[in-house]
Amino acid sequence: MTDSVISLPIRILVLLLLLVIVAPLAVPMLMAFSDTPFLTFPPQGFTLRWFERVLFGPEAQTSFLFSLQLAFLATITALLLGVPAAAALVRYEFRGRSAIIGLMLSPVIVPLIVTGVALLQMFSSLGWGDTLTQLVIGHAVVCLPYVVRSVTASFVLVNRDLEDAAAVMGAPPHKVLTKIVWPQVRPGILAGAVFSFVVSFDDYPISMWLADGRHFPIPLYLHGLLERSIDPSIAAISTLVILFALLLVVVIEKVFGISIARLAT
């Protein structure tokens, strides 16, 4: 559909909807510039010192970098488990297939706070003391459904005739995989990876149970800041997180050449 066929009322409606969605994000972004020692809206005065405090504060930096590391590891783990699982679920009929699908998607259904305490109990019973490993496993568990769903959808849409044709023409299996299958499932895998990364990066309920002082993801840091901080630092760090999410979208579009609209579908 081109711009010329979108009517004016629809354009206005879309604009209003976008405003409703974006307006709540604008509030903390504006508060972050307030030159008062406490949060206030509308902002009073103008300062960048809250951004300076957050950007150069070692705790915020450490938590932010740790969250990036954790989200990366959890995403890799979820992809390693989720992509083969999705392929198998689409291409093979076997006993217990429905149960496995249900099991893999269960973290989306069960409240995460319950999943978190159950994981803590399990790790404690097993005597696993390594916090990073616990967190990566915990996050991978909640990321897995997003990978499986999006990759499954891609595999369903793969044209099997092309694979057969390539094989008949003498292409070895690894060539079929890289030249025929991969281009078709790549958007789904990337979409799963993006969702997985964002879910892990934003996660609070799992981290609340499994994190400790040395492994302290940014959502926990933000929550703690909200409890103790009365100045606009919290608004500044919220602004940075919003900008980071926008940057992520731009990178995906520009570097990988995949639009967010396509990821969403």
Binding site: V117, L120, Q121, S124, S125, G127, M208, W209
Partner: peptide
Amino acid sequence: ANVEKMRATRSNP
């Protein structure tokens, strides 16, 4: 939450 953590790790505090 702290009480719940003690409960969850009771077998291996």
